[in-house]
Structures are given as structure tokens and as C-alpha cells.
């Protein structure tokens, strides 16, 4: 496989008010990689993704997607990007079929092609019955599956998944994990954010840990293990983000719950 750089962040910084959310982030992602992008709440993960997708403009530094600076050409690169948003924002007054038709056409596909792909995908995700149902009546898992379909319908080369497994049952989780693996082998690049460490540990080729707007670790899981003494990703994560007091904090919480005896 060629060592083609799909995504590059160079000196990426952004401030919200007087808070430095991202500080000089540098990252190069190659074709076919699955990047596990993790960090504590508020570390700047979603902000990074929002900048790459063009949702935030007032950043410093540069973002290159497929080799082009997104500042120079803010539209075309999006044709080959798929995105599963964190909070499941979706036009839920539409039916499943209408929504995917809309998204697919926005990516320039024609209606018949979308219909064909959609039917097949809905069948695989066991959503065929709700094809003509309003999304507002969907369960969390169904909505998540639909967002997954919406992000893949146009066969993108670069995927952003923000907690894609939330609300899914164990069987669907296995399908999605396997699917990501096979997509990566087919040359797709996946940028994956999650708080579930065991999943990130298993599926990522490369793990990037963000803390307080800075990258504090970057490498394959085995590299991280070699650099740190701890065993699991969860432990490494705790260690790197400077959090070693979970036992003590938990003990204090239990103490508070039981009342001062």
C-alpha cells in the first residue's frame, strides 16, 4: 500500500474566548489507518473533528485533507468524507428513506443508485421495516445505525466516527467493528473517537491521546505499551492524563454517599 498522507494537521490551534482548546496540534494520517483519537472530556477531540469538517473557521494553523489545504478549497474535499456526529444531529421529521435520499443527493449520487444501496444496507442493518418511518420515533440504536448508513452511502475515503457504537447492541457492535477493519483494508481511513478504551485498543492501528488541547501520545498500542509501564490502554490513558487517584476519589464518593459515620 502506498504511504499516501490523507489528513494532515499542522500547528492547529483554536481558542474559545480565553480558553485555549487546541494548542499546536500536529498530526499526519496515512491511507488505510484507523486512528483512535481519545482524550478526557473537554480535551478538544470534537473540536478537532469540527475544524477538519469545516464547522469551525476561526482556527490557526493548517488542515490538509487529501493533500489540499481546506482553507483554499473548502468544498470539494467533503465529497469523499463521511461523518457520524457525536450528538446524533439529524432531521428527524424526515423518514429514514427520505433522509438518506437527501444526504446521498447532496453528495451528488442519483436517486436510483441511492435507493438500490439503501435497500441493501437497511436489510443488513435490520432496518427494512422502518424505511418509511419518521426518524423521530427511532430508538437510539436505530438512529445510530441510520447515521452510519448516511455516513457511508457515498463510499467515502475518509471517515469520522464520533462514539459510533453508542446505543448499539452487542451484535451490531461486532458488525461495525469488523466493518471498520475491512474498510481500512480496502484503503479507507478512519478517524475514530470514543471513550470506550477496550474498543479503541482493539480496533485502532494507531492511538492518539489528546489532553488539554495537546497531543501527549501517538503510536500503535504496542508502542504505547513499550513506552509506559502499565498494561491496558485504560491504564496508560490514566497514567498519561495524569490521573492516578481513581481509587481515592471513588473511596471519597462512597464515603459521601454513606454519610459521615
Amino acid at each position: 500500500m502506498t504511504e499516501e498522507t490523507i489528513l494532515e494537521l499542522s500547528d492547529l490551534s483554536i481558542r474559545f474566548g480565553n480558553q485555549q482548546v487546541l494548542n499546536q496540534v500536529n498530526l499526519k494520517v496515512k491511507r488505510g489507518e484507523i486512528i483512535g483519537y481519545i482524550g478526557p472530556n473537554g480535551a478538544g477531540k470534537s473540536t478537532t473533528v469540527k475544524i477538519i469538517l469545516g464547522l469551525l473557521a476561526n482556527y490557526h494553523g493548517n488542515v490538509y485533507v487529501f493533500g489540499d489545504n481546506i482553507r483554499d478549497n473548502p468544498v470539494d474535499y467533503k465529497r469523499k468524507i463521511g461523518y457520524v456526529p457525536e450528538n446524533g444531529e439529524i432531521y428527524d421529521d424526515l423518514t429514514a428513506s427520505e433522509y438518506i435520499q437527501f444526504i446521498g443527493q447532496m453528495y451528488g449520487m442519483d436517486q436510483a443508485e441511492i435507493e438500490l444501496k439503501l435497500d441493501a444496507l437497511l436489510a443488513k442493518f435490520e432496518l427494512t421495516k422502518v424505511k418509511q418511518t419518521k426518524i423521530s420515533s427511532f430508538s437510539k440504536g436505530m438512529k445510530q445505525k441510520l447515521l452510519m448508513i448516511a455516513s457511508l452511502i457515498h463510499n467515502p475515503d475518509l471517515l469520522f466516527f464520533d462514539e459510533p457504537l453508542s446505543g448499539l447492541d452487542a451484535n451490531s457492535v461486532m458488525i461495525i467493528k469488523e466493518m471498520m477493519d475491512q474498510l481500512a483494508r480496502a484503503g479507507k481511513t478512519i478517524f475514530y473517537s470514543s471513550h470506550i478504551m477496550d474498543v479503541v485498543e482493539k480496533i485502532s492501528d494507531r492511538i492518539v491521546i489528546l489532553n488539554q488541547g495537546e497531543i501527549i501520545a501517538d503510536g500503535a498500542f504496542t508502542d504505547l505499551q513499550a513506552q509506559n509501564k502499565e498494561g491496558t490502554l485504560e491504564q496508560i490513558f490514566n497514567q498519561l492524563t495524569g490521573f492516578d487517584q481513581h481509587e481515592q476519589t471513588a473511596a471519597e464518593i462512597v464515603g459521601i454517599i454513606q454519610g459521615a459515620d
Binding site: L53, L55, K78, P85, E89, I90, Y91, M106
Partner: peptide, 11 residues
Amino acid sequence: RDKVVLATKPL
């Protein structure tokens, strides 16, 4: 929702 749904598309 426009922001998330539309702004991420090639438009």
C-alpha cells in the same frame, strides 16, 4: 442541525 448535516457536505 443545518450546521452538522449541511456544512459537512460538499456545498
